[in-house]
Structure formats: structure tokens, C-alpha cells
Simulated scan of single mutants.
Amino acid sequence: MIENWQHFLLPYQQAVNELKVKLRGMRKQYQEQGKHSPIEFVTGRVKPVDSIKEKMVRRHVQEDRLEQDMQDIAGLRIMCQFVEDIYVVVDLLRQRSDMTILEERDYVTNVKPSGYRSYHIVIEYPVQLVTGEKKILAEIQVRTLAMNFWATIEHSLNYKYQGAFPEELSARLQRAAEAAFRLDNEMSEIREEIKEAQTLFSQRTAAQPIKADDEQDKEKRQHNESSDL
């Protein structure tokens, strides 16, 4: 029986922290090379204890099998601008030697009946503890910003209805999911224009000198004073 959940979850928190740094580092490398990054931003979390216990009951997971049977105690989410970026990120993860991919589930191509879209990857990741190496499971979800918006709303509603959505609400969610995917497709059609514009903006921003805070504050005060006249 798990008596100290904080101790049990410590390796998972360490894995999340390390993976966030590594995945954000991939984005930084693209930016330093002046290239479009397939990674827009990265978030991560360790599943709360109450959520773990609820899922253990719902999925009939025995406590002594928790580390093997619950794949998303450590969870990372990678957001992308374009659908095409999702598969670029997946390929990048496949090439890494610091993690082992155990399972892939493509809900982008094989959309769920609810309308949910995302690419799920279950990895085995080694963390270095003072007691030695420990390999843990973590789940990485890769999705577009539009997919993430829909999934966040659906997740919130799921807490209210416990998965048993009213028929009309379920239909509306499905239509919203299709609308979000149409938006993704439209953005993909003009992605080269978008990427070029973003590159130009980044170059222009990088070329501008950074002013000292006191100079910026002075400019703000002068602007406010002139606005009052």
C-alpha cells in the first residue's frame, strides 16, 4: 500500500521537469537557426493523487501494478501551430536516444467518435535518483492549438456530466471539433505565408535594441503626460 504519495510521485515530477527542459530546448534550437519550430510550447504535469485513485477504481488498476498499468501519471503536452508539425514532432521523438517509445496512438487521423484529436505517445524514460536509475512511464500528447482548445473545453464539461453528455451537447461538441479541424486545415493551406511572416517579424524584433527599464518607464511617463494634455 502506498503510504507516502509524495515520495512515490517524486520520480514522475523529476521526469516532467527534465522533459519540459529538453522539449523546450528543441524549440530553442530551431529558433537559433532561424527556422520554423514545429513546437509552439510545452506544458507538463504530474497527475494529482485524487485523479490517480479515481482512475485506479475506474480502470481496475491494482496498486501493485500502478507503475506498469497507468501510463499518464507523468504527462507532457506539446502544442503545434500546424497539423503537419505534429508528425514532424513525432519523428523527432522517435529519433531521441534518451527515451524509448512503447506505444503510439494517432487520434489525429483516427479521430475519436467524440471529435477528439491528438497524437499520444507512451514513453519509457529513465530518471537518475540517489538510489540509482528508475525507468518510469510517461505520456506525451502532441496536438495543434485548436485541438487543445477543444480538448480543454471537452475535459471541463466531462467533469460536469461524467462522460454522459446530453445528446444535443454531444452533437454540438462534434460540430465544434470539426470546425476546429477546418481551421487547422485552412491554416495549413497558408502555412508557408504564415511561416515567412513570422520569420520576418522575429528578425525585426531581434534587430531592435533592448532599452533599459528606466528608459522604458520614462517613455511611458512622457506618453501618459502627453495624453493628458
Results as ranks from 00 to 15, higher is better:
Ile2Val: 07
Ile2Cys: 01
Asn4Cys: 00
Trp5Val: 03
Gln6Ser: 07
His7Thr: 04
Phe8Glu: 00
Leu10Trp: 04
Val16Tyr: 03
Val16Ala: 09
Lys20Ala: 02
Gln31Arg: 10
Gly34Phe: 09
Lys35Trp: 08
Lys35His: 02
His36Gln: 13
Ser37Lys: 06
Val42Ser: 03
Val42Asn: 12
Val42Asp: 06
Thr43Ile: 12
Gly44Ile: 01
Arg45Leu: 05
Pro48Met: 00
Lys53Ile: 14
Arg58Ala: 12
Glu63Cys: 04
Asp64Gln: 09
Arg65Asn: 09
Arg65Tyr: 03
Gln68Leu: 07
Gln68Ile: 05
Gln71Arg: 12
Ile73Ser: 10
Leu76Pro: 01
Gln81Phe: 14
Glu84Gly: 03
Glu84Met: 00
Tyr87Pro: 05
Tyr87Met: 08
Val89Ile: 07
Leu92Val: 00
Arg94Gly: 03
Ile101Pro: 07
Leu102Lys: 08
Glu104Asn: 10
Tyr107Ser: 04
Arg117His: 05
Ser118Pro: 08
Ser118Thr: 12
Ser118Ala: 15
Val122Glu: 15
Val122Leu: 14
Pro126Asp: 13
Val127Arg: 13
Gln128Ala: 04
Val130Pro: 09
Val130Trp: 05
Val130Ala: 15
Lys134Val: 07
Lys135Pro: 02
Ile136Asp: 09
Leu137Gln: 11
Val142Lys: 11
Val142Arg: 06
Thr144His: 03
Leu145Ser: 05
Met147Tyr: 02
Trp150Glu: 04
Ala151Trp: 03
Glu154Pro: 02
Glu154Cys: 03
Ser156Gly: 01
Asn158Arg: 14
Tyr159Gln: 07
Phe165Thr: 08
Glu167Trp: 01
Gln174Asn: 06
Ala176Thr: 11
Ala179Ser: 12
Ala179Met: 05
Ser188Gly: 15
Arg191Tyr: 03
Glu192Asp: 15
Lys195Tyr: 05
Lys195Asp: 15
Ala197Tyr: 04
Thr199Ala: 13
Leu200Arg: 11
Ser202Gly: 04
Ser202Ile: 00
Gln203Val: 03
Arg204His: 15
Arg204Met: 14
Ala207Arg: 10
Ala207Pro: 01
Pro209Asp: 10
Lys211Tyr: 00
Asp217Ile: 08
Lys218Gln: 11
Gln222Tyr: 01
Asn224His: 10
Asn224Gln: 12
Asn224Gly: 05
Ser226Asp: 10
Asp228Arg: 14
Asp228Trp: 09
